[in-house]
């Protein structure tokens, strides 16, 4: 169970995704960079050259290290690359949300939460 203090000051969204998704979401105004000394960004652009370790590291940072992130948005095709990490992540905070990207149509069968929904209803 998440205690109140756990999510009281979670006020940012974080995003891991391809260039277009990140750009769009940043335009909406979710981008945040912390104060200069370490200046952490709350977004990660993934392209063909980004290796899985980087994605995993960013996922780890957003979900466990940072205490001000309430929702982690991740492109579904990116989530596929670190599927084992996403599937084993079951904590309530921050919420991990798989979003569709421009080049990859959304597939509800792959979504870790939707799969749990389906399993619960025995479909």
């Amino acid at each position: 169970m998440a205690s109140q203090a756990d999510y009281k000051d979670r006020q940012f969204l974080a995003v891991i995704g391809d260039e277009d998704s990140v750009t769009g979401l940043l335009l909406a105004g979710i981008g945040h960079v912390t104060a200069p000394p370490d200046s952490q960004k709350n977004f990660l652009v993934v392209d063909g050259k980004t290796d899985n370790a980087t994605i995993e590291e960013a996922f780890e940072r957003f979900t466990t290290e940072r205490k001000d992130v309430g929702i982690v948005l991740i492109n579904q095709h990116v989530a596929d690359r670190i599927r084992h990490r996403v599937d084993t992540y079951t904590a309530a905070f921050p919420t991990v949300l798989e979003i569709p990207s421009k080049d990859h149509p959304y597939d509800p069968e792959k979504d870790s939460v939707l799969r749990r929904v389906r399993r619960l209803f025995g479909e």
Binding site: Q4, F12, L13, A28, I30
Partner: peptide, 21 residues
């Protein structure tokens, strides 16, 4: 492509979350 410009100019989040119970 404006993505680079946007990524660089992101400073402080305009869109924030509030949690209620």
């Amino acid at each position: 492509n404006i993505s680079f410009q946007i990524q660089e100019s992101a400073r402080s989040a305009r869109f924030r979350l509030r949690t209620k119970q």
